[in-house]
Amino acid sequence: MAKATFKIWRGDSSGGEFKSYDTEISPGMVVLDAVLQIQGEQAGDLACRWNCKAGKCGSCSAEINGNPKLMCMTRMNTLPQDAPITVEPMKAFPLKKDLVTDVSWNYRVKEKIKKFKPRPPDATDGTWRMVQEDIDRVQEFRKCIECFLCQDVCHVLRDHHKHEEFIGPRFLVYAAALEMHPLDTEDRLRDLKDESNIGLCNITKCCTKVCPEGITITDNAIIPLKERVVGEFYDPITRFLKLFRKKR
């Protein structure tokens, strides 16, 4: 059976290094299989997160040969095997150990976004009516598995470390799903402008490229949100009308 060489980052917040492991490759194997095999046979204390092993939970995010991916959905046969395969943790978050990063910032950010607030039920049976066409877009956003790969590649976070100012693509998608939810009545536009600093996104679409769920993050979520923010706060006609409304 074929063997492959892996260079896996081992270390913690105080430092670390790539270590080499050789392991056997069987048909259909994904990178996560190899990492778990190495863990089971050679390096019992190799830390990594995983759960579903089917691209549905978003736990096993890592950078494979420099590309942010889910380890469970990266087939070995898609990687060149004449050179060692590198596996390292996401870079936009502090390292805990080996492949495990501290993603708690993401959970704190989400809590700050105003929750779903539906309008009162409109049908006589106490429920709502929504047509499929009106929810297709929201359903696309709700496919997000929170792997945080989009956050990992967003240079506002990764390179400029603006975690305190900017919420990142994941939470712009989350906000978009709420804002475009047909039942929602909350207004998050001011927060998006002032707290989330949506303006920091300069639409390089790196997030869209790495999304394992194929969510068109930039075009379908971020740009429409930016347009709404612009319409609300920068459009002269809207501003004038608002002024008028206030006076009245």
């Binding site: 913690d12 863990q39 390096a43 019992g44 204390d45 190799l46 830390a47 990594c48 805990k96 150990k97 080996d98 495990v100």
Partner: peptide
């Protein structure tokens, strides 16, 4: 036997 130290150690968890 667990390999390594007690920090995030799957062999110990297992």
């Amino acid at each position: 036997k667990a390999t390594g130290n007690i920090d995030f150690n799957p062999s110990w968890h297992t």
